[in-house]
């Protein structure tokens, strides 16, 4: 009966698969190095996955709408460099700068969304070009040598703790609840799934599709800015090492592992376990002394395994259920 439900409800199937995958990876990791499973380390893992998790929420929304956002990595880098340079360690500057950066993010994402909606330029091309522009802007602004540092307030958000719990994890939980609510209950968020499944039908059903596309890309860029702010608070300085292309690819991987498709099928919530799995693998492999190359290979394998699981060709497939008497 439970198997039957899991087979028929795709979102349930995705969540069960993700949970099993996390348990499996933690189990294997625990066998190799037991100290990885200590509560302190698990909390540290959760903290590490916050910036990626935030960006992945935005990326998932874009993917569910049938597009892709290749500019999030550059926006994270931009946020980090601008935040450090403009705040320069001063608390009283923090809030204005944060507001300015959020507005800048909305402007950048909104521009991408506007041009995608109005001119029909493919999202991949538009956001790739935008990424290039932002990256060039970063270099121009910093002259290639970023300076400045985060303020104590920003450091509290990025690296502080309340008891044993990192502040960034608390921020993430609040943010995630808001986003999930938004994409389930509020029409601007909820219609995303419809745009991805059949853009034309959404238009003919009376959805203001162009405005929604602008919203979705602005949302994704805003999430990237938030992610960059948390990063800056943790690292404390501006650096070109933050964000970038690898980070953008990780956000796509998180969204896809989270069960999200370009056809509006999936659930934005999947991005959270998706980002956790990516962070988990990379952290474990790093602690085992396996280089970045190994992390890439492992990540690729996991993406394939998960997506095959969701499409139902193995695992909970009909044939197997039949044999089991389902």
């Amino acid at each position: 009966m439970l198997l039957e439900r899991i087979r028929n409800d795709r979102n349930l199937k995705v969540m069960v698969s993700l949970l099993l995958m996390i348990i499996l990876i933690l189990g294997i990791a625990g066998m190799i190095t037991p100290r990885l499973l200590q509560p302190g380390h698990l909390i540290e893992l959760a903290r590490q996955s916050v910036p990626l998790g935030i960006t992945a929420l935005g990326q998932s929304a874009v993917i569910l709408s049938g597009g892709i956002d290749l500019s999030v990595g550059s926006i994270v880098t931009m946020t980090n460099i601008l935040a450090a340079d403009m705040i320069r360690g001063r608390d009283n500057r923090t809030i204005p700068v944060v507001l300015f950066l959020l507005a800048l993010g909305i402007l950048i994402g909104g521009t991408s969304g506007f041009l995608i909606a109005k001119t029909g330029i493919p999202p991949m091309v538009m956001t790739f070009a935008m990424s290039s522009i932002v990256r060039g802007g970063d270099l121009l602004y910093s002259g290639g040598a970023p300076g400045g540092r985060a303020s104590p307030m920003l450091r509290f958000f990025g690296a502080g703790r309340v008891g044993p719990v990192p502040v960034s994890v608390i921020i993430f939980i609040i943010l995630a609840i808001l986003v999930l609510f938004w994409f389930k209950k509020v029409r601007t968020g909820r219609s995303t799934y419809f745009l991805g499944n059949n853009f034309r039908a959404a238009k003919y059903a009376g959805v203001p599709v162009e405005r929604r596309i602008v919203f979705i890309y602005a949302f994704s860029a805003t999430m990237a800015v938030l992610s960059g702010l948390i990063f800056s608070g943790y690292i404390g300085v501006g650096s070109f090492e933050v964000g970038g292309e690898a980070f953008m690819l990780n956000s796509v991987a998180s969204a896809v592992i989270g069960g999200n498709t370009f056809l509006g099928i999936g659930n934005i919530a999947g991005a959270i376990p998706g980002a956790f799995i990516i962070t988990l693998i990379n952290s474990i492999l790093r602690s085992l002394g396996i280089a970045v190359t190994g992390q890439h290979i492992m990540q690729g394998v996991i993406i394939i395994v998960m997506v095959v699981l969701y499409t139902g060709q193995i695992g909970f497939s009909r044939k197997k259920l039949k044999k089991a008497g389902g």
Partner: peptide, 9 residues
């Protein structure tokens, strides 16, 4: 199908 429905939903 193309202008009216979301077949997967």
């Amino acid at each position: 199908e193309s202008k009216g429905l979301f077949l997967d939903f």
